[in-house]
Design a protein around this nucleic acid. Structure first.
Lengths: 229, 229
DNA sequence: CGCCGAGTTGACCATGTTCAAGGTGGGTGG
DNA sequence: CCACCCACCTTGAACATGGTCAACTCGGCG
C-alpha cells in the first residue's frame, strides 16, 4: 500500500535536502490503513470543512477544483487558493482548520487521517521532509498572492490569474474555468463587476476571446504576460 | 553547544505532532560548528540578501527589525513581514531566496549555514519537525496577510497593523515604530499619504495619540479591535 | 541658521465599487 | 418543443475610496 503526497509537491525543482533523494518519495505502508486515503465526493458548493473545525483529516484532490477561503464577519470572502487534481489541502499545524474549504465543482477527493500520518512521519524521515516541502510551497504561494493583492491593478490581477490558470489547464490555449466570476473576484480582491469589465476589455483589446463565460481563449499570451507587469 | 530555533516557533500553542514533546525543543550539537550561528550586524536599510541570491544561510533576529519583501520591475514593493527578535527568516525550500531582506533599523542577527542544518535535520527528527512548524507558521502568516490586503479598507488595515505591532511591543500601551511610513504603506498595500491620513484620522477620533511620528499611544484598544472589522 | 529627510495636509483625479438594469444560457415543466 | 425561470454574467452611471501631485511642517544635525 502506498501514498503519493501530491504532484504539487514534487513538480517544481525544489531540492530541500540536497544530500538525499527525497524526490518523488512514495510512502510505503505495510498493512495498516491509518494513512490510506478514503475516497470521498462533494457536490458543487458543498462545504468540505469550515474555519475552526477540528482538523482530523486532510485531503488530496483527485478530480475537480476546491477553494480554500476565509470570511470576515460581514460576509466578505478572500479565497486563498484553488486546488486542482494532485494538490493537497487542509493539512494543519494546529488543531483547527485555519480556512474553510468548499467544492468549486463536483469533486472527488481522498481524505487522510492526520493522526495516522503524523505517527508515521515521526518515524519516517522522508515523509517528514515531504510535509516540510508542502508547507514551504504553501508559504511561497501565499506570499506571491500577497504581492498580487497588495500592489497590482485590476488588469494585472486578472492577467496574472489567467496565466496561472493556463498552467493548470495544461498549457492549452483555451482554458475552461471551473469557478464563477464571484470566485475569481474573491481570489483577486476585486468585485465581480470589475472582473467582468476587465475581461471584456481584454477581449476588446484582442488579448483574449470569451466564447462562453466559462471558456476563455488566450489569443496573445505575450501580451498577457506583459500585462501581469 | 545548542541552538534554539526561535521563540516565534514555539510561542503559540500549536501541537503539530501530538505524540511527541517537540515543544521548546532545543537542538543539541556536540562540537561541530556547521549550524552554529555566526553573529552578524546590519546597519539601517542595508540589504541582507536579495531576491534570487543563492540561499546558503538563513538568519535569526537577535535585536532590531528586519523586513522581507518583493519588488515589481517598476519599483513597487510589497513587504511580506517584519521580523523581530527571535524570528527566523530566509529559510528556503529552493536554492534561491524568494524575497529580499533588509534591515529596518540597526540589527544584530545570527546567520546559520543551511547545508549544515539540513544534514543535521536529515538525522534529527525533532529538528525536522521544527522546520516543518516554521514553514507552517510562515504559511499561516502569509495567508492572514492576504486577507488583510485583499478585503480590507485603509482604516481596517492600519488598525490591524497597530494591534499586531502592539503585540510585538509586548502589549504596551505606547508602541515605538521601528519602520517608516513607507514601510507601513508597503506592508499594507497603501500609499504613504493614506497611512499618514488614516493615522491622523484615528488621532482625531481619539483612538490613538501620536506624540512623535514614531511613537503611537493606543488610547482605545477596544475601538481599534472593532475597526479591524 | 539652514539644510535635509520624514511626515503631514490639501486639492484634484483615477481606479474600482456600488447600485441598477438588462442580457444569456441551461434546465425544468407544461 | 417551447416557454419560463433562475442563476450567472455584462454593462452603464453615479459615487467613493484611495492615489497623485504639490506645498508645507517638523525635528535632527552639520
Amino acid at each position: 500500500m502506498s501514498m503519493q503526497l501530491g504532484s504539487s509537491m514534487t513538480g517544481a525543482a525544489l531540492p530541500v535536502f540536497a544530500h538525499g533523494s527525497w524526490k518523488n518519495a512514495t510512502i510505503e505502508r505495510d498493512g495498516a490503513s491509518a494513512t490510506t486515503g478514503c475516497s470521498v465526493q462533494f457536490a458543487q458548493d458543498r462545504e468540505i470543512y469550515g474555519e475552526g473545525d477540528t482538523a482530523t483529516v486532510f485531503f488530496k484532490v483527485v478530480e475537480g477544483v476546491v477553494r480554500t477561503c476565509k470570511f470576515l464577519s460581514d460576509g466578505r470572502r478572500q479565497i486563498d487558493a484553488f486546488h486542482v487534481a494532485g494538490d493537497v489541502f487542509g493539512f494543519e499545524a494546529g488543531v483547527e482548520y485555519r480556512l474553510s474549504a468548499e467544492a468549486v465543482c463536483n469533486c472527488r477527493l481522498t481524505s487522510h487521517r492526520r493522526r495516522g500520518l503524523e505517527e508515521l512521519a515521526a518515524t519516517d524521515l522522508a515523509l517528514s521532509q515531504q510535509l516540510f516541502l508542502y508547507a514551504m510551497q504553501g508559504m511561497a504561494r501565499a506570499q506571491d498572492h500577497s504581492l498580487l493583492l497588495g500592489r497590482r491593478s485590476a488588469v494585472e490581477k486578472v492577467a496574472a490569474f489567467l496565466v496561472e490558470w493556463a498552467r493548470h489547464a495544461g498549457g492549452c490555449q483555451t482554458i475552461i474555468l471551473a469557478m464563477t466570476r464571484q470566485d475569481i473576484a474573491d481570489y483577486l480582491g476585486l468585485t465581480i463587476e470589475t472582473v467582468s469589465r476587465t475581461l471584456s476589455q481584454l477581449e476588446r483589446d484582442a488579448v483574449i476571446e470569451i466564447p462562453t463565460a466559462r471558456e476563455i481563449r488566450l489569443k496573445d499570451l505575450a501580451a498577457l504576460h506583459s500585462l501581469k507587469s
